[in-house]
Design a protein around this nucleic acid. Structure first.
Lengths: 222, 222
DNA sequence: CTAGTATTCAAGTACTCTATTGAATAGTTT
DNA sequence: AAACTATTCAATAGAGTACTTGAATACTAG
C-alpha cells in the first residue's frame, strides 16, 4: 500500500510538471501572471490559434494552475493563486542556474546585459521616496491599465522616443515590464543609454512586484 | 527577434518542466534530496529497472536538475543544488492546494491525518532544547547514516515495536522521515498512538531540515 | 427567431515519451 | 588477458501529446 500511495502521489505531482512541460503553456502562464485575460487575448499574444490556446488553457486548468470565469460570450482565465507565480519563479531560477543554454540565449539576445545592471525593488522604493527617479512602465497601455507600480508612467516602447524629448536632462529612469526576462525593459534601457540617459531596469516585473505584496495602482476605467 | 527570443527562452524553461512531468523522475528526485545515490540504489527504491533508471537520470541531468560523479564502477547522482529542493517544494505546494485528487489520495491513505497534527521545525527545536521530546528518525539505517537531525535516534519502522519497550512512559516522541509525504512517519505515529504514546510527526522531513540551513549530524563510518 | 461571435469539442496526423530488451562500454578483480 | 560488475547505449512497440481543421455549443444583438 505504501508503495502504491507514493506512486499515486508522485503521479499527481507529475500532472503539474506536465503542465509546465511546454513552452507555449509557460508563455500563457506568464501573461496570466499580469491578470485575467480572455482566450482571444491570450491567443493573440502567444501567436497560437484560438482552438489551440483553448486546449492548452484546459490543460493548465486540469493541473490546477489556472481558473476561469465566464462573462457573456467571453471566458476569462487567471492564475489560480500566487503559489503559481512562486512556482514559475523557482522554475526560472533552476533553469537559469543550471541550463547553460539559457545563459547562452540571454547573452546572445541581450548583448549589453552587463551594462544594464538591474535595480532591486527595495532600492527602487527608497529612490522613489526621495524623488530621485522616474519609473516608466513599458508594457502596452492595456496591461498598464490592468495594474501597475504606483506612480509609474506608462510609456509603451513605440512612444519611448517621443517621451524622451520631454524629460529633464540628468533625470534617472527605471523601466520595468512583465518579468525578469521581458525584453521590453531591456530594449527600453538600451535605447535610453544610447541617448546618454541614466537608465536602469527593475530586476523583475509587475507580476513579481504585485506578488511581493507591494502596493499597486489600477486604472478603474478598464 | 523579440518573439523568437521569448519562444526560445520558454522552451528552455519547458525542458525543466518536462523533467518534472513524470512520477518516476519525481520519486528519484525525492530520494536524491537525501543525498548522493548510485544508479543501482535508485533503481532499487523506485522499483524501476537499472537501464530505465539510468535513462531517467540522464534526462534529469540534461534538465540541469542532477549532477553525477563516477567512482570506480559506480556512478553517483546528486541534486545539482538546493534550488531543486525549493522547486520540488513549490510543485508540491501547488499540487496540494489545487489538485483535489491529491487531497483525496492523502485522505484515503492517511485516514487519521487530522489526529496526527505535525510539529513545526521551530517548535521542535525549542522542545528539544528543553529536553521535552525524543526525536526518532524512522528511515532505514543507511539513509540515517548519510545525515540526520542532531540528537535523533534511528528507529527504522521494523524496530519500532522493540524500541518502544524501553522508553519512559509519558515521554513525548516526534518522528520524521523523508519529507512531508513520506508515509513512514505517519505509520510510526499511528503505531505509537495506538499504544497510548504521546507521539507527533515533524511537519516535513530531513531534506527540508537540511535545506533550511539547520545543523545536521553525519555518521562518518559510512 | 436569426445572424453573429467567443469558445469548446472531436477527429486525424505527425511527433515525442516510456519501458523493455539485449548489446556495448568502462572499470575491477583474479 | 579473462571473467565480472555497474552503467550506458540502441532499437523498438505502444501510449501519449501538439497542432490543425471543421463542426458544435452557448451566449448576444437585432
Amino acid at each position: 500500500m505504501s508503495r502504491g500511495f507514493k506512486q499515486d502521489l508522485f503521479n499527481q505531482f507529475a500532472r503539474v510538471g506536465k503542465a509546465l512541460s511546454n513552452g507555449n503553456r509557460l508563455e500563457l502562464l506568464e501573461f496570466l501572471a499580469q491578470g485575467e485575460r480572455s482566450v482571444e487575448a491570450l491567443a493573440g499574444v502567444s501567436g497560437l490559434t484560438v482552438a489551440n490556446t483553448s486546449q492548452h488553457l484546459q490543460q493548465l486548468r486540469q493541473a490546477g494552475l489556472v481558473a476561469s470565469r465566464k462573462q457573456g460570450l467571453k471566458v476569462f482565465y487567471r492564475l489560480s493563486s500566487n503559489d503559481v507565480i512562486s512556482l514559475m519563479d523557482s522554475l526560472r531560477k533552476v533553469a537559469e542556474h543550471h541550463l547553460a543554454d539559457v545563459e547562452h540565449l540571454v547573452n546572445t539576445y541581450l548583448t549589453v546585459k552587463d551594462k544594464l545592471e538591474p535595480i532591486a525593488r527595495e532600492e527602487l522604493i527608497e529612490r522613489v521616496k526621495d524623488d530621485l527617479v522616474t519609473v516608466i512602465d513599458v508594457r502596452p497601455a492595456e496591461e498598464y491599465a490592468a495594474g501597475h507600480v504606483p506612480g509609474a508612467v506608462n510609456v509603451p516602447i513605440r512612444e519611448l522616443e517621443a517621451y524622451l524629448q520631454q524629460i529633464e536632462p540628468g533625470q534617472e529612469i527605471v523601466a520595468y515590464c512583465r518579468g525578469p526576462h521581458c525584453v521590453l525593459a531591456f530594449d527600453a534601457v538600451a535605447v535610453m543609454r544610447d541617448k546618454g540617459i541614466n537608465a536602469r531596469r527593475l530586476e523583475d516585473g509587475y507580476p513579481e512586484w504585485k506578488n511581493a505584496g507591494l502596493p499597486v495602482e489600477v486604472d478603474s476605467d478598464e
